[in-house]
Design a protein around this nucleic acid. Structure first.
Lengths: 312, 312
DNA sequence: AGACTTATACTCAACATCAGTATAATAGCG
DNA sequence: CGCTATTATACTGATGTTGAGTATAAGTCT
């Protein structure tokens, strides 16, 4: 049945590189642009992943620890340009923040600059009122009563309105809802009708093409993954205190966790080992410095680990 | 940084279509070939997923319920052909088994024909001895003692040797291990050295190109997914008994589940509703017939559901 | 010295999970 | 007709996990 199409479609590899610095999860963007770094997939590459690793490490000199494929997109209506057809294969990579020393100038930016509504560490963010109003208006536009109710329910579930619990993993679904509700600029591109001017546009920077969607996919994946795989450690320095580790998890998850339970789970599972040293920079009692037990990657890269992400 | 490569790379959409029939999970293959149906991605398609849906429904007339993207491959060394470079974007689709009424002749085949070692419903399968021996031999080939131990441990964890528990989700990792250990024919392709002839080749049909890897990816994804999303119901007829549902889950998971607990979880979560009818075909006491409550898709397409996959 | 901050250890209730057992309703058969 | 085999369905107790709270230790800052 196969017989691949011969009509020359181009393929781009897009890298979503994440680091966490002082309680701020950041993504690498191209200087002065809201764009993720990307490069073409070439015939010389042995595989997609090795192709990505190759040019990222060459161009940014970042030590790429963990890398995983995110998603492959080729939507006609969401690239902005209509004529050219590109398949975008996106990857998530975890690293530690360093000066971008590659040929191209790069920038680390907080991902909450693009998704301010995703940070619930200090409770519901201030713009939630605006979100709520915008979504309510969109619900009202539904043709009939049933559709109206369905929209309201969907919005409430995703954003935690009306007693629904906030689920931090639904980043992509929330983004897609806002897109559908035309509350973000990407949804209005290439539409010149006067009606295209949105009544409300929600705060948060947008990105070129569908890069903000890729970022949403990556945040969602990472928020899910830290709960059952020891990937947080890829973002930490060699030695760290348990509170630093907790702050890193909280930064990613966008919500606070219960300190005693967090410590219990980390220690129970023997994910870390004591270095014998302590950190004085806590402001209070000095904290033990720990080191990730790399051995667990071999022991249960597989079997699974658990991080507690619950209420504060 | 971007600027997509202009060098005409072809993209294929590959469909892994799954149905369950009388305790047997099956995949749609091309008649008389161990190959998954695939079609080219064309410029006319609005998106990758809609492209896939279009040609699958046109060519097979199957009602595609649930569809999700699996993975995108472009490995040079695993396609068999070296000259041509194709990006394979694979999708998983759930359906109900029907006569393939499309233009191309198709076949439903048990996926355990390709992965006999993945069926643990009756305990460890008979070929496990052979697997064990093959993997032990591979471990011995390691250069030093540490590497030898690492190989042994990896094999034991993945296959549940030496007191390790069998984790049914690690389908892909097991396949990749067997590939690395050269215990499956795909690993020997394009290698004409005499040493390429494997001492042992494990039972189980292989497929063209890297299709067996795609199948492994799909089985793994599905086994993980049924635990927290109500996707099993896409594979069930309109009404069914709880035991039928259980058998379906067991067929997918490749292991038996505890009946009382299974029933409790299904009913507790209100995933199904009573139709009032009963089935006489049980051979014993007639069983109530249930229907999937489609409403839960709206209620918590999102919030999550749980299926108990534990010991028998 | 005393207030404040952070680290670390321990306790308890609520809940989910695992596994086993008991009873009900049918079919098949001598 | 009554027995057994088979399946459906309901209940029970032990165990483990999770969420949340409290108490104490060891520093810094004023």
């Amino acid at each position: 049945m196969s017989a691949a199409s011969k009509q020359g479609i181009a393929a781009d590899l897009i890298a979503l590189l994440v680091a966490v610095n002082s309680g701020d999860p950041r993504v690498l963007t191209i200087q002065d642009q809201h764009a993720l770094p990307s490069g073409p997939f070439e015939l010389a590459h042995r595989s997609l992943q090795s192709g990505l690793r190759a040019w990222v490490e060459r161009q940014t000199r970042l030590p790429l620890g963990y890398v995983e494929q995110l998603y492959t997109f080729a939507d006609r209506d969401r690239t902005g340009t209509v004529d050219q057809r590109v398949i975008s294969i996106s990857y998530l990579g975890l690293t530690r923040e360093q000066a971008g020393s590659g040929r191209h100038e790069t920038n680390w930016r907080s991902w909450y600059g693009y998704f301010p509504w995703e940070d619930h560490r200090l409770g519901a963010p201030p713009m939630e009122k605006m979100l709520r109003a915008g979504l309510a208006a969109w619900s009202e536009e539904a043709p009939d009563r049933a559709a109206r109710r369905a929209r309201q329910q969907r919005a409430a579930m995703l954003f935690g309105f009306d007693g629904h619990v906030w689920n931090e993993e639904l980043v992509l679904q929330r983004y897609e809802l806002l897109y559908e509700a035309r509350l973000i600029p990407e949804a209005l591109r290439g539409d010149d009708r006067p009606s295209a001017r949105a009544a409300t546009v929600v705060p948060g920077d947008s990105m070129i093409l569908d890069h903000r969607r890729i970022l949403a996919t990556g945040i969602a994946r990472l928020r899910a993954k830290i709960k059952y795989r020891p990937v947080v450690f890829e973002l930490m320095p060699d030695t760290f205190t348990l509170l630093q580790l907790q702050r890193c998890v909280e930064a990613l998850a966008g919500k606070l966790v219960h300190k005693p339970n967090f410590r219990r789970l980390i220690e129970q599972q023997e994910l870390v080992e004591d270095t014998g040293e302590t950190s004085q920079e806590t402001g209070g009692r000095p904290a033990k410095l720990f080191r990730f037990r790399r051995a667990v990657l071999a022991e249960r890269a597989i079997a699974g680990t658990k991080l507690p992400i619950s209420g504060s």
